[in-house]
Design a protein around this nucleic acid. Structure first.
Length: 427
RNA sequence: GUGGAUGUAGCUCAGUUGGUUAGAGCACUGGUUUGUGGUACCAGGGGUCGGGGGUUCGAGUCCCCUCCUCCACCCCA
């Protein structure tokens, strides 16, 4: 019986695995050089954990199961709730600031399409306990640092940055009530997806006052933070939110990444828990969905039963990023093996010697393979090439004199060496 | 969840108005080559034509259902 793979999943054959490792290793390296520590949690959590933050719609997109004790569990669709749980559990023992990263495997029961599968990897970095926008700047810098390290330039990608807090305060200054904000965010987030008439139509449903609507329309047209400040008379709170976003851009400039970052008022982000800076990373042509996104969430720990602690972070999935790197030609064919030595055996009578030599090389930390079939030496050289061996050792009649032939596969040069000396130099 | 497109060898694809034993390139295995690879030449293995049902003397080809993949919408933590 042939059993098909599960919808929306991928099989990582060695060449694809090499690509995946390149992505995840790059994420880890960028995290570490930016001063983050790695953590991970379980692959499933209590189903409840994902119901706290959001409604049933999200629960519908979960893979859930019951254990034999009847507990409702879910495979993690994101790792932020786990992070919140873990941090809450040890909140008094953890030195601040908490700078943690993770590269979890996540599952969501969504319909697969371009850049979105049911199982994927997502880079997460979070800074917990720092209120200043410096932390938001650090998150953005770390993301850009990574993207730059894989060869993407400011011609390829852009970080679109805004502030939930600024948006909220300016809307309130316009006269929008607190309880109107959440549905309004959902609409404003779609401004570039909806035709202008449809947007206006839906805006009328949410905001009855035409003067307020005009100001909201003007606000959404703002191309700069200054333009936002001119939409209406700012309250002190709004002024402070504007100043904060300006400070963020100043810091991004100091960090040398302002070419990668632009202000974009339409970045609101779907869900309710963002409280300050929000951003999304896109390809410049915007032909793909967002590569990653994040922002400040000040209430999350509290929602999971902890104290009120400020936090900011980012998530970046492997699917869209992989497509972009492929399109930009930055995903080279990666070797799945890189041997230091391939041990070829010229004659079956020396096979034991070849095995012994291989074992010695491996024990000395050298990446070594040998052929399971002695016989045609040409075949063995072919294998050595296929396995990207840098040197091939020929075990043949020379061993009678304690010698071996070593061929450099790149230059083709071959030398006879004294085996005992060679082993002595391995350490 | 809604709508559209697709499915032939491991991969990329040919396959005529329905007609005998379904092909190519690449990949794989073996050989040319019992002391020398990355290029060459020769040979070989590999297909229930996504699955099921129907029309027909006859279906890879036409019809219906279903599954997968892709694309758009919904959603996007």
């Amino acid at each position: 019986m042939k059993i098909p793979p599960v919808k929306g999943t991928r099989d990582f054959y060695p060449p694809i695995m090499a690509v995946r490792n390149t992505l995840t290793d790059g994420w880890k390296a960028a995290s570490i050089r930016n001063g983050f520590e790695e953590y991970d949690g379980p692959i499933f959590e209590m189903l409840k954990m994902y119901q706290v933050k959001s409604g049933d719609e999200i629960v519908e997109q979960l893979f859930s199961l019951q254990d034999r004790g009847g507990r409702d569990l879910a495979i993690r669709p994101e790792i932020t709730p786990t992070l919140a749980r873990m941090v809450n559990q040890q909140i008094n023992a953890l030195p601040r600031p908490i700078k943690w990263f993770s590269v979890p495997r996540l599952c969501r029961a969504e319909r697969p399409q371009k850049g979105r599968l049911r199982e994927f990897f997502q880079w997460n970095i979070d800074i917990i306990g720092i209120e200043e926008v410096l932390a938001d700047a650090e998150i953005i810098f770390c993301a850009v640092d990574y993207l730059r390290s894989v060869g993407l330039t400011d011609k390829d990608i852009v970080v679109r940055v805004s502030s939930r807090r600024m948006l909220a305060e300016v809307l309130k200054a316009i006269g929008i009530r607190e309880d109107q904000l959440d549905p309004l965010y959902a609409l404003l987030d779609k401004i570039n997806k909806l035709p202008p008439e449809a947007f206006e139509e839906k805006l009328v449903e949410l905001v009855s006052d035409s003067g307020q609507r005009d100001k909201i329309q003007a606000l959404m047209q703002a191309q700069s933070i200054e333009a936002v400040a001119q939409v209406t008379t700012l309250t002190d709170a709004a002024r402070s939110a504007v100043d904060e976003l300006n400070r963020l851009f100043d810091t991004l400039n100091t960090m040398g990444i302002s070419d990668y970052c632009i202000f974009d008022i339409s970045i609101v982000r779907g869900l309710a828990y963002y409280t300050g800076v929000v951003f999304e990373i896109y390809d410049r042509e915007k032909t793909l969905r967002a590569i990653g996104g994040g922002g400040r969430y000040d209430n999350l720990l509290k929602q999971f039963g902890g104290p009120e602690v400020t936090a900011t972070g980012l998530g970046m999935g492997d699917c869209v990023l992989g497509i972009l790197l492929e399109e930009k030609g930055l995903m080279k064919d990666l070797p799945t093996r890189n041997l230091d030595f391939f041990v070829a055996c010229a004659d079956a009578q020396y096979e034991a010697k070849a095995i012994e030599i291989t074992a010695i090389l491996r024990s000395a930390g050298k990446i070594t393979n040998y052929s399971y079939k002695t016989g045609a030496l040409g075949k063995q050289f072919k294998q050595a090439s296929e396995q990207n061996a840098s040197k091939t050792i020929i075990v043949g009649s020379e061993v009678e004199n304690g010698q071996l032939a070593i061929k450099d596969m790149a230059s083709g040069e071959q030398t006879l060496v004294d085996w005992a000396n060679f082993v002595g130099q391995l350490g």
